[in-house]
């Protein structure tokens, strides 16, 4: 087991190295980063140096003057000790901005994951136990509908119904206009109020996948021999399903949910942007659109790490919860 984990970790580092290089090379080769924008604006000012001269000067200032390969190794050298440089767009250290924003995203992700589990798993089990019934069809079609909705369209619909027509929530942002005048509890509820729609949106769009996954696995379990045995022993249907079947369905569920845990830190890029929630996703979106290389680099490598970590966790969990699985 330890050997497997070490091997996987080493492999992950290698993969990460190349992923980082691809991203870095792409960002550096695009002629539209933040530096180019500044150089262009500055060169347009009267009596200014030419664009090329500004570029030369700014490249040195921002440490972008050694080629792509050299620059990448320089970046790695700093990144390994946790120094991701200063964000150009936010003009603060990248890690500081990250700490300011990531916890909001994490809370949003966690709450929506909890709701997702609460809603999707029971519905999935229900659909599987009543296979081919009306309930099953309704749940299946519902789960397909939730995965077919584009985030922006669903968010717009939510805004139209709950913000515009019912006036329950604000359209954008994390805090209301009178936030500063509120008491501590008022501030908490103000933020909570602003997070309702984004979390609803996140939850709704993600339950479909988990619901179908639960249903498929539950069906597989229900068709297995030991369930038939349990039934033939004359156990009640409730015992069969919740004691024998559901517990075995948990095996794949635990692995997939465990694997999705690192993803809680990645933030919801689109949802946060649509609701202008200053989590890591929205922050990164602004930085990326502005061509902020240090921040974008950090965010994308961070996402890659989370993906690798998620895969590793689900593989390990798979072996942990299911003793039949042997890891080579």
């Amino acid at each position: 087991m330890r050997k497997f984990i070490i091997k996987r970790l080493l492999l992950s580092v290698l993969i990460l190295f190349f992923v980082g290089f691809i991203i870095y090379a792409m960002m550096r080769l695009l002629p539209t980063s933040y530096i180019e924008n500044i150089a262009y604006t500055k060169s347009l000012q009267p009596n200014s140096k030419s664009y090329e001269e500004w570029m030369e000067q700014l490249s040195v200032t921002y440490g972008m003057n050694n080629g792509v390969v050299g620059g990448y190794f320089q970046w790695i050298g700093h990144a390994i000790v946790g120094d991701f440089g200063d964000s150009w767009f936010y003009t603060v250290p990248v890690t500081q901005k990250f700490h300011e924003t990531v916890w909001l995203s994490f809370v949003m992700g966690l709450i929506s994951l909890i709701f997702e589990l609460i809603i999707a798993i029971p519905l999935g089990v229900l659909a599987a136990t009543k296979q081919y019934s009306k309930t099953d069809y309704t749940i299946s079609v519902l789960s397909f509908i939730t995965i077919s909705f584009p985030t922006f369209f669903f968010a717009s619909l939510l805004k139209l119904v709950f913000s515009v027509n019912l006036g329950w929530f604000d359209l954008y942002g994390l805090v209301g206009r009178n936030y500063d005048q509120l008491s501590a509890i008022g501030k908490f509820f103000d933020k909570a109020n602003h997070l309702v729609l984004p979390i609803f949106c996140l939850t709704f769009l993600s339950i479909g996948g988990l619901m179908r996954y639960t249903r498929t696995n539950m069906l597989e379990v229900l068709n297995s021999d030991y369930i038939r045995t349990a039934r033939s022993k004359g156990l009640s249907e409730g015992t069969v399903i919740y004691k024998h079947a559901f517990r075995n369905t948990l095996i794949p569920l635990v692995t997939i949910v465990g694997g999705s845990l690192p993803g809680l830190f990645s933030g919801a890029l689109i949802t946060e942007t649509l609701f202008m929630i200053p989590g890591i996703g929205f922050t990164s979106y602004n930085a990326m659109v502005a061509g902020d290389i240090p921040f974008s680099m950090f965010y994308m490598v961070f996402l890659a790490i989370l993906t690798l970590l998620g895969n590793l966790i689900s593989d390990i969990l798979y072996a942990v919860v299911d003793p039949r699985v042997r890891i080579a």
Partner: peptide, 26 residues
Amino acid sequence: MRLVDVFYCIPTTPILIILGAAMDEM
């Protein structure tokens, strides 16, 4: 398969956003 792993790991949406913004600029 290592190449596949690398591509699997690349966050596609952020990259497309960056490229889209760059194409806007250009």
